[in-house]
Design a protein around this nucleic acid. Structure first.
Length: 416
RNA sequence: GUGGGUGUAGCUCAGUUGGUUAGAGCGCUAGGUUGUGGCCCUGGAGGUCGUGGGUUCAAAUCCCAUCACCCACCCCA
């Protein structure tokens, strides 16, 4: 029988690495609730149409990266490529907007995109994100960005940069698009093939092309910030002021354009220099028109999504090691299989008292058990044999110091 | 979808112009220590050389195909 392999672009996350994931999940849950956000758990697949309409037919995600299939009823189903569309759907479907004026939600879980894998890019990848629906206050933007930054700080992510921009409302954007096209038109010969295509499909994207020649050509391109209308401008000013007040460092990047169609006004991105080509750790922005677009009542909203694989890649090495150290409290060495029942009783007593306890299950020699205890990082080892049982005691060895003493069988050990 | 790179033990990798039983380090395991870890010493297990075909007296090594992984383009978190 030939062993099967996992699907391209998927990962098995094994111990002790999985501890990093557990830790990250804990930090996300804890921080989100500290800011008053509640978890929403939505399906991992939806009707294809939701994503097509929500993300935009013309985007790469929708046009070539979705895992789409027909169910038994012949309906087109898609594995979610991102979280926002589903949350907005759930928001409208469950009338959350009528139940309370403001919905502060977050999610965490896998997303699916059929891209060619590379560093920091998997086909099943994990994101967490938040969506705040029901306010157009710039301070919702600020709160979201700050929360995003705080989570990264707690996880020991250094070398990051926060970039913000405003892409205004649709009207000012279309005006801007025209003047940008005008600018590019005279330079079409000097930019790359891809950018010539972008010029047709999505001229804003020419701005953040990575190639030197394009960057050079676009140096003096008109800035979107100068095309914002009064309200958008004011909104952007407030966001900046809010970040300043809290002391969050950022860089205004007027070339920052997000790939998804639904953004309005504020957009931002956090990049890490320790990641390679896929350096974007998280990104988001305001999407004031999406809810209506998907059939809900007009509802302004803001959200972000963060890539978990990328965050874990960017985590500081020392911090990683620290988290991955399991350190159970106590390893119970069984010196004689005859007393196995007694040993299990003892283990359960310790566990009831709140200790994390591991007990020998392989019937190995004491030497092998000690080696195992050492390897697993156990803080103490309990020595239990016939002799100890007869005397109603157990031996307790401190693995760091090597000290060993005996204690009554009923006592719970102090863990150093 | 397009490039480039890499596939040899659980892991990281050696392997000469094709030549006899394919190696090392780490890890695992047993012992040196009658019931005591780390350090040290000794032994042991573990390999369809990614897969299929071809050339050859002989292939890990050369040729063709194929698959997988990695990195980059593209795009995004």
């Amino acid at each position: 029988m030939k062993a099967l392999q996992r699907i391209k672009g998927t990962d098995d996350i094994l111990p002790p690495e999985s501890r990093l994931w557990r830790y990250l999940y804990d930090v996300v849950h804890q921080t989100m609730s500290q800011y008053g956000y509640n978890e929403i758990i939505v399906p991992m697949f939806e009707y294809t149409e939701l994503f097509a309409r929500g993300i935009g037919e013309a985007t790469d995600i929708v046009s070539k990266e979705m895992y789409t299939f027909k169910d038994m009823g012949g309906r087109s189903i898609t594995l979610r490529p991102e979280g926002t569309a589903s949350v907005v759907r759930a928001f409208t479907e469950n009338s959350l907007g009528s139940k309370s004026p403001l919905s502060k939600l977050y999610y965490i879980g896998p997303m699916f995109r059929q891209e060619k894998p590379q560093k920091g890019r998997k086909r099943q990848f994990y994101q967490f994100g938040l969506e705040v629906l029901g306010t157009d206050s710039p301070f919702a933007d600020v709160e979201g960005i700050v929360l995003n930054v705080r989570i990264l700080q707690k996880l020991g992510i250094n070398d990051t940069q926060l970039m913000i921009n405003s892409i205004g409302d649709p009207e000012s954007r279309s005006v801007y698009k025209e003047s940008l096209k005008e600018y590019i038109k005279s330079r079409l010969d000097n930019i790359c093939d891809d950018c010539r295509k972008r010029y047709e499909n999505n001229p804003l994207r020419v701005l953040d092309c990575k190639r030197q020649e394009c960057r050079k050509e676009m140096q003096n391109a008109p800035s979107i910030l100068e095309h914002l209308n009064k309200d958008s401008k004011k909104h952007f000013e407030s966001v900046k002021a809010g970040l300043d007040a809290i002391g969050i460092e950022y860089k205004i990047n007027e070339r920052l354009v997000r790939g998804l169609d639904y953004y309005t006004r504020t957009v931002y991105e956090i990049v890490s220099s320790s990641l390679g080509a896929q350096d974007s750790i998280s990104g988001g922005g305001r999407y004031d028109l999406l809810v209506e677009e998907l059939g809900g009542k007009p509802t302004p909203a803001f959200g972000f999504a963060a890539g978990i694989e990328r965050i874990i890649l960017a985590m500081d090495g020392n911090k990683r090691d620290e988290i991955m150290d399991s350190g159970i409290d106590c390893f119970i060495a069984v010196l004689d299989t005859k007393i196995l029942t007694k040993a299990f009783e003892l283990a359960e007593n310790f566990r009831k008292a709140g200790l994390s306890v591991e007990i020998e299950l392989l019937g190995r020699s004491l030497k092998a058990q000690m080696r195992e205890a050492n390897r697993s990082g156990a803080k103490t080892v309990v020595m239990l044999g016939e002799d100890e049982i007869n005397r109603n005691v157990y031996g307790l060895k401190n693995m760091a110091t090597g000290d060993q003493k005996e204690y009554p069988l009923e006592s719970i050990p102090d863990i150093p």
